[in-house]
Amino acid sequence: MRKRLLAGLALAGAIALATTGCSGSASGSTGSTGSSTAGGGAAHKVITVGFAQTGSESGWRAANTQSMKDAFSEANGFKLIFNAADNKQEAQIAAVRSFINQGVDAIVIAPITVDGWDDVLKEAKAAKIPVILEDRTINVSDPSLYAAWVGDDFKKEGETAGAWAKQNATSPTNMVVLEGTTGSAPALDRATGFTAGSAGAPITTLASQTGNFTRADGKTVMEGFLQKYGNKIQMLFAQNDDMGLGALDAITAAGLTPGKDIKIVTIDATHDGLQALADGKFNYVVECNPLLGPQVSDLVKKVVAGQSVPKSQTATDLSFTQDQAKTALPSRKY
């Protein structure tokens, strides 16, 4: 009886492995921009790279992971060892340690938290393995512990959104804000950036509450705003697309038209967000680009070849109006 149960479990496990394997390889065919072979000569040696991803908490992260897998493909001369740490830092540090033990050529980390990296990065340095940070930054005592950082500039995104708000608030405007998860770097930096970008505009912030970057909370909080202020609200700044998408239903239910009665500016530019923009429900969307793979793989090649690289690089974040969204949508990958 017990043996049969075990056999059954093993079979189920095997099936699960097989199915995940399939979906992984099937989607790997999307061509990535191979980028210039930066190493100069002798670029035929396969570079083994360990990538410690945070986990799979959002659509943004899924797109980021896919971009990395595409860029670090075998066709591009890489062997990628991928690890997703389920948003637990100790698991991520363990993964980095195992990369060191396996003797990879380079390590890429999307750090879960800011602190606590000194020891493991010193071990990597002792093993002469370069470390490249992706997406988020870290605090370390010695900046030479990592070679470079590539990521999005949240503050700049907020500034771009703020500049649009300023441009469109020609008369006094009442605005409400849906903030991201309280205390997270994107929420803080986007808020600071927006304030800087919209400085001097006749915008009054009626209320600002957290929607935890989720659709459901964005919707509930927007309902509350609408009950409280009614049609006094003229503009909504949602710090990500999801919260803005959630707010749309609340606005419609209040008998108002999103995009007309309430102008909406959001950040992220996911596929759903751009769709809402193209449909005229959003008014302006600033991109937070998850497709960092090509930039990171370029950096890894240069670092492994011993070239000097800039310490920090930001991804190019576009921004979209309603018309631009219509043209951009068909070729959108995420």
Binding site: E57, S58, N212, T214, R215, A216, D217, K219, D242, L245, G246, D249, D272
Partner: peptide, 16 residues
């Protein structure tokens, strides 16, 4: 009901 409310299945946030 949760998914119908936002017309999306958000595996990370649903019922958190």
């Amino acid at each position: 009901l949760y998914s119908s409310n936002i017309m999306a299945a958000d595996a990370n946030a649903a019922g958190l």
